[in-house]
Design a binder for these strands. Structure first.
Length: 570
DNA sequence: GCCGTTTTCGGCCCGACTGTTTTCAGTCG
């Protein structure tokens, strides 16, 4: 798959052209194409061989030719030429808040600055303030921006932003001038990592809201403060943008600030074709500026001739076209989940007893919980010997008599380097279901790793594949593995692929989940909980499923207990 | 550089805030 590689090249070209001062629309054309290729479901090499590149929206004659050159020769002369003109490292300067292409170009041309370190030095020496368009304040802001960047390195896990966001919404509710309050932005779309938190409030007294907001106990510094937009940085380094609009604009503003950017550009183009104009204040007739809609999001989409699109789907991956035809999938809801398949107990490395887990599951409104402890060889996690695991199953059957919720006796069984499983089949058959999982020897070749996992999935007792790619967000890349083949083998062997809901896993991710669904594979959501508190992570797994367009039928957790047991007895 | 329900040329999403200006460019989302 060269998709990501080609996409990255186009993103880089866009950055370089922007610094060069090239026409903005040309830059945008490259970015649009890069984004399109990045989210393409098919292999771009295949599309190229079939001569169908031009059928991809945003790819014209020139870009098709460049894609061909990359596929045939492995490089692109045009990019090489740009790199000779502009050092690649100065693209990195644009990640500093307040520095865009224009100022970056001035820094390079006038002072020869190529790296963040050089920029920091120049700013500290007061060399920036005399440049055109710069001043003392800009110089200070750049230093502050560098410090912030180096401290937070950009993005945080969804779970962290979700906590902060929920607390802030609760806080804002205490101000009676706030009429409607909602999370917006990537947090509302439940992306796996979040750059900053967007919150939207409707009110007739915006100043009151803004004054109240900046007094929030966790605010560390105020970046900007106006009557419609205020930005602060919290003590944990996360930036929060608050917007306040009038009630009649709340829906339009929520739509606008939820994004994604690409989704919104499509929406606006669609509006123009219908003689309308969409902005954060509402939908207007283009000629007369007459207000048509904007109080609710539903109203905005309806006015544009669209079905309502769930926030998690707004990534411009084809949802707008489907909404036009009234053919959006009915994606799984946060209340559709009847239980959690992946929980660790005290028997291995969890902190709660089986009975505590069962009672807590009941409290969450579940119909079942699945206890899936580690297998023998995973000694660091107190994996269970064959002898102890039989005792555990006995205990589960005993506790089952006492509680009003189904407890599945399961295991997260290690896949050994040769693809065999850590328990013998005579033990595996005793479980209600078996997760197979990789926890050791991550660095194998793509071919070896793929074969290893396939061999495990072909074991007749393996029902689920846990965290299929092994990535840990921000800490460890996925192991080298052919996910497409895993998906196909899963279908052939009736294996369910896990969407692991633990915040730094979210594995499968949304893109793979969507692909698995399209190829007819069913999935399970498991939290990988090691304490009762972790069980609330289920929502992040559901979010991945929703972002992957999964419907109830695609997710085993939504089935009735009877149907689950039927699906597990094969 | 792409694209076509006015167009094969002339458009291309749009508004707020800041800093450096003295009417606006740059940046951001």
């Amino acid at each position: 798959m060269k998709n990501q590689e080609i996409s990255n090249i186009f993103y880089e070209i866009a950055d370089l052209l922007e610094i060069k001062g090239e026409m903005p629309f040309k830059v945008r054309a490259y970015r649009r194409a890069a984004q399109r290729i990045e989210t393409l479901e098919d292999d771009i090499e295949e599309i190229y061989r079939e001569g169908k590149l031009r059928e991809i929206p945003g790819i014209g004659e020139a870009l098709a030719k460049k894609i061909g050159e990359i596929i045939e020769t492995g490089k692109l002369e045009y990019l090489e030429k740009l790199r000779r003109e502009i050092p690649k490292s100065i693209v990195g300067l644009m990640s500093i808040p307040g520095l865009g292409p224009k100022k970056t170009a001035v820094l390079y041309k006038k002072l020869g600055i190529e790296s963040i370190e050089e920029l920091k030095k120049a700013a500290e020496q007061g060399k920036l303030r005399d440049l055109d368009g710069f001043g003392e304040v800009t110089e200070r802001n750049i230093l502050r921006g560098i410090e912030m960047l180096q401290r937070s390195m950009g993005r945080v896990l969804l779970s962290i932003a979700f906590e902060d966001g929920s607390h802030l919404v609760d806080y804002l509710k205490k101000n009676s001038d706030a009429l409607n309050i909602s999370i917006a932005g990537s947090l509302r779309r439940m992306k796996e990592t979040i750059g900053d938190i967007d919150i939207l409030v409707s009110s007739l007294k915006p100043e009151s809201i803004m004054d109240f907001f900046v007094k929030y106990q966790d605010v560390d510094q105020i970046l900007v403060k106006g009557s419609t937009k205020t930005s602060v940085v919290l003590r944990d380094g996360l930036q929060v943008d608050l917007r306040v609009v009038k009630p009649e604009s709340f829906g339009a503003a929520l739509q606008y600030f939820t994004g994604s950017k690409e989704h919104n550009i499509q929406i606006r183009n669609l509006a123009i074709k219908r003689g309308l104009k969409v902005n954060e204040y509402g939908v207007f007739e283009k000629d007369s500026d007459k207000y048509v809609a904007g109080k609710t999001e539903e109203e905005v989409y309806k006015t544009l001739g669209l079905q309502y699109i769930e926030p998690e789907m707004r990534e411009n991956r084809g949802e707008i076209e489907l909404a036009q035809k009234n053919k959006l999938p009915h994606i799984v809801g946060y209340d559709d989940i009847k239980g959690d398949f992946h929980i660790h107990s005290q028997w291995s490395d969890g902190t709660a007893s089986i009975e505590e887990i069962a009672r807590y599951g009941k409290k969450l409104g579940y119909e079942f919980v699945g206890i899936a402890d580690h297998s023998a060889s995973l000694k660091v996690a107190r994996g269970l010997s064959e002898e102890r695991v039989m005792k555990k199953i006995e205990e589960i059957r005993r506790i089952q008599e006492k509680v009003d919720i189904k407890i599945f006796a399961a295991t997260e069984c290690d896949i050994k380097p040769d693809g065999s499983l850590d328990y013998s089949n005579s033990i595996l058959k005793e479980f209600d279901y078996v997760y197979a999982a990789i926890h050791t020897k991550f660095k194998m070749s793509r071919k070896e790793m793929t074969e290893r996992i396939i061999k495990a999935m072909e074991n007749e007792y393996v029902t689920f594949l846990a965290h299929p790619t092994g990535r840990l967000i921000g800490r460890r890349d996925a192991y080298e593995v052919d996910v497409e083949r895993l998906v196909d083998v899963a279908r052939e062997n009736n294996v369910f692929l896990e969407i692991n809901a633990f915040p730094d896993r979210l594995d499968l991710n949304d893109i793979y989940a969507k692909m698995a669904k399209e190829r007819g594979v069913k999935m399970v959501i498991g939290t990988d909980s090691h304490s009762l508190d972790h069980m609330r992570f289920i929502k992040f797994g559901i979010a991945v499923a929703r972002r992957g367009w999964l419907e109830k039928g695609d997710v085993l957790n939504t089935y009735s207990l009877k149907d689950i047991e039927k699906a597990l007895s094969r």
